[in-house]
Amino acid sequence: MVFSRADHRTSDFLEVLQRERPELLSRFGTPPLLDSPPANWKGQRMPTSSLTDLYDNLLEGTTILAAVYNEGVIIAGDRQATAGFQVGERRIRKVYEVDAYSAIAIAGVAGPAMEMAKLFQVQVEFYEKIEGSPLSLEGKANSLSNMVKSNLPMALQGLVVVPIFTGYDLKRKQGRIFKYDAIGGQYEESEYYATGSGGKDAQTTLKKLYSPDISREGVLKIVVEALWDAADEDVATGGPDFIREIFPTIKVIDSTGISDIPDSETKALYTELLERLHS
């Protein structure tokens, strides 16, 4: 710890790391490691066999989604990470609490994605502590956009990270969803959104079942169903695992703050869904 110069004082943690510990940011904002990016890292036209192995063994996060309901916003993700055609990890977490009123979910290559989520959480908290008041919800969203942008060199090599950011806007008194593309473009969704390998399937379910002013109870049901459909259609997405007791991560944010839906409740929601699908 060094006493920093007064003109080095900043509430931007990214700036602190860039100045003091740039090696910790080597993933973000470094030039491409390879001369020619592989055209399609899932399969054909790989430059060398070792590179194919490398890409096939990277963990990839699969389906994440978010939906606004009448009192706030809900954010969820399945628990599987996939490496090529293998289950890479059954219990990975893709939804993280950022602060008392916001959360981030990540899809894409798991390593850099989880690192980005961790860095983003520190970034938001650092600002709050230095300034004595939290960033605005849009301020947080913009700061995440910058992080995704700085991942561009990695994205060009197929190492894409795509987050969803959600939070309760205390000024507007509503839940809000921000989605990002691979190069940091930021767009707001007013109702629901899903991304990742099973995102399209989850999105279809949400589209069919969503209604504006949906209740908390209602939105929980359709989120669970959307994740079920994603796991049903997309081989990479994990469904509820009743044998190992692994269930999707679901977090709810409203005017009282963020809270986790406990596994027991998620399990009950799935049991109910399965009964409905069965009959």
Partner: peptide
């Protein structure tokens, strides 16, 4: 200045 240095030092250490 000490408060700032403390927060920064702690966050950098915790992140590392």
């Amino acid at each position: 200045a000490l408060r700032y240095a403390g927060i920064q030092g702690a966050e950098v250490k915790g992140f590392t």
